[in-house]
């Protein structure tokens, strides 16, 4: 591409760094999952702080340890999990546009609150989409540069830098990843296959995030909850679906989930709450609360209206 110049070099991808846009839509019929950012809200703000459209390609960094060297000037923004970030060893703020120069080194520590960090670049990463999206799904070997996570010394192209405003998301509008509000679940009809007691336990007991927490799904541990359905035909699985396999421990299915499965489900978590769950790490506690489809719809309308009112502050 002739609009690319020198780009950026990944010196260390850290624990897991993936190229993502908002995800791959409309490809379930051939078995492709969605991918995309585990916390789409933080992802969107990273792009908006860089004056980008919401679906611009950026990087999702899980936990941290990411280091990169810029070969050209640009503007970046970091959002999501709280992490110590430096540019040439000088601390830089999150949730704010940061100008960088050729030769600058960006270093991230490890997240101290939350789990998923987003790094956006002004103009985004110019990467060829596959099946309409640049989202990397490692299990499918689809998206990103070669269907893989970022590796050491990998070169990433950037678009030519253009001067844009320096923006900041007001403190009051930033998410609090330690917020322990219950995660809202729309009850599915298979919820009726659990006894009233099991359902009462599910919506009143504490569950903990287990060590099996990845982009496919979060396995939680806590009070057992067993369905009376012993075998069922595999069926389509939506984002946030909560499966309860025979061991009675919930699995919340997330961005890289398989598209079909055959375990009974309690329902599906609302996307704004899967985004919060995806910021939790092993050992964190979570609680569920049940909502009806009408309540979920009303919550989404209200929250979207509130989000539309948020204004980025112009610093320069």
């Amino acid at each position: 591409m002739n609009n690319t110049t020198n780009g950026v070099i990944v010196k260390n991808p850290g624990v897991l760094a993936l190229i993502q846009d908002q995800g791959r839509i409309g490809q379930h019929r051939i078995g492709l999952t969605v991918g995309g950012p585990m916390d789409p809200f933080a992802f969107r703000w990273a792009n908006r702080l860089c004056s980008n459209a919401d679906n611009t390609t950026a990087i999702e960094i899980s936990i941290g340890g990411f280091v990169a060297e810029f070969q050209q000037p640009t503007q970046i923004a970091l959002t999501g999990a709280k992490v110590k970030a430096t540019l040439n060893n000088q601390p830089i703020p999150m949730w704010q546009t940061v100008p960088v120069q050729a030769g600058d080194t960006l270093k991230l520590g490890f997240a101290t609150q939350g789990c998923r960090i987003y790094l956006a670049f002004q103009g985004g990463l110019p990467i060829e989409p596959q099946f309409g999206s640049t989202a990397t799904v490692v299990r499918e070997k689809i998206g990103g540069l070669h269907g893989t996570a970022l590796t050491k010394e990998q070169h990433l192209p950037l678009t030519t830098w253009q001067a844009h405003s320096t923006l900041m998301l007001p403190f009051a509008d930033r998410p609090d990843y330690e917020n322990e509000q219950p995660l809202r679940v729309v009850l599915g009809y298979q919820a009726e296959s659990f006894s009233r007691i099991d359902r009462a336990h599910f919506f009143s007991c504490e569950y903990k995030v287990s060590e099996r927490m990845d982009r496919m799904g979060y396995r939680l541990t806590g009070t057992e909850c067993k369905s009376s359905i012993s075998s069922m035909l595999s069926e389509g699985i939506c984002h946030g679906a909560i499966q309860l396999p025979p061991d009675g421990q919930p699995i919340v299915l997330l961005n890289d989930r398989q598209t079909i499965g055959g375990y009974p489900k309690m329902g599906a978590m609302m996307a704004r709450d899967t985004a919060r769950l995806a910021q939790k790490t092993q050992g964190n506690s979570v609680f569920f609360s049940a909502v009806t489809i009408q309540e979920a719809h009303a919550i989404n309308v209200m929250e979207k209206h509130k989000e539309a009112q948020i204004k980025l502050l112009k610093l320069k």
Binding site: Q27, R29, V34, L233, E235, G236
Partner: peptide
């Protein structure tokens, strides 16, 4: 998106415009 399977079809819809 649509996910056809053995005996069912999952329909994921745009909830900005449809309930």
């Amino acid at each position: 998106d649509l996910i056809p399977s053995y005996a069912s079809l999952l329909v994921i819809y745009d909830d900005d415009h449809y309930d």
